[in-house]
């Protein structure tokens, strides 16, 4: 993932907000990145653009050698499905689906995973994250930490190269936080690119690279 001069401006009635200003950086597979900064500095905006769920005003974003602006809606969706796993502070789980069904959701459109294997993979992932006995629960029957782990399992469903997380531990206690960071660390060791936005200082024990961001700009490392 290479960001080249990325700019994001929110055009408001009264004044325009420059959420990102001249962002240049790249993210490699096999490494664990932490993005830190004050509230409102543009961390979420940055990671959303990286995860292809937000648009940017100008600049060039290249992912796996492809220029994002030149991709069609279908190709973008395909990239999201195969290459990107996203985890949110607010979880964004489908309330009508059980935990294992939420995890299956990204697999339903992945033709490389056989129909019969989807459920098995889903259960395996949930077990890996210590949720063997929560598979049949609906999101409203799960605790915050459990929901976040379901979210993580969903992000991993299609075995993506990039795992992006926006304050994944914001609503969790220390124990759950450590568990999430540890798991992400393991994944980065397996060759995935992990990018985490966080306010938590213990991230420094896990991450390879810390990117500090302030007022939409990357500070010196």
């Amino acid at each position: 993932m290479i960001l080249d001069n990325i700019e994001k401006i929110y055009y408001m009635k009264s004044n325009d907000i420059k959420a990102l200003n001249n962002i240049n950086c790249s993210f490699e597979k096999g490494k664990f990145y932490a993005i830190m900064g004050h509230s409102g500095s543009g961390k979420s905006t940055l990671i959303n653009i990286l995860g292809l769920i937000d648009s940017y005003t100008s600049g060039k974003y290249t992912i796996n050698g492809k220029d994002v602006t030149k991709l069609s809606e279908k190709e973008l969706a395909n990239l999201r499905m195969r290459n990107i796993g996203f985890i949110f502070q607010e979880f964004y789980l489908d309330e009508n689906l059980k935990a294992f069904e939420n995890v299956m959701l990204p697999m339903l459109i992945n033709k490389e995973i056989k129909k019969s294997e989807r459920k098995t993979i889903s259960f395996k992932l949930l077990k890996f994250l210590g949720l063997d006995n929560r598979c049949y629960h609906y999101p409203k029957e799960l605790s915050g930490g459990e929901k976040q782990r379901v979210c993580l399992a969903r992000a991993l469903a299609n075995n993506p190269d990039f795992i992006l997380a926006d304050e994944p531990t914001g609503a969790l206690d220390e124990e759950n936080e450590k568990f999430v960071f540890k798991t992400l660390k393991e994944l980065s060791k397996q060759g995935k690119c992990v990018i985490v936005v966080t306010h938590s200082n213990i991230i420094k024990n896990y991450s390879d690279i810390v990117i500090n961001i302030s007022k939409g700009k990357i500070l010196e490392k």
Binding site: K74, A77, N78, L105, I109
Partner: peptide
């Protein structure tokens, strides 16, 4: 809309 968003994050195409 939230469910639409969840589907899109998961990589569903508009036509899907």
């Amino acid at each position: 809309q939230k469910n639409l968003g969840i589907l899109k994050v998961s990589g569903y195409t508009n036509s899907e």
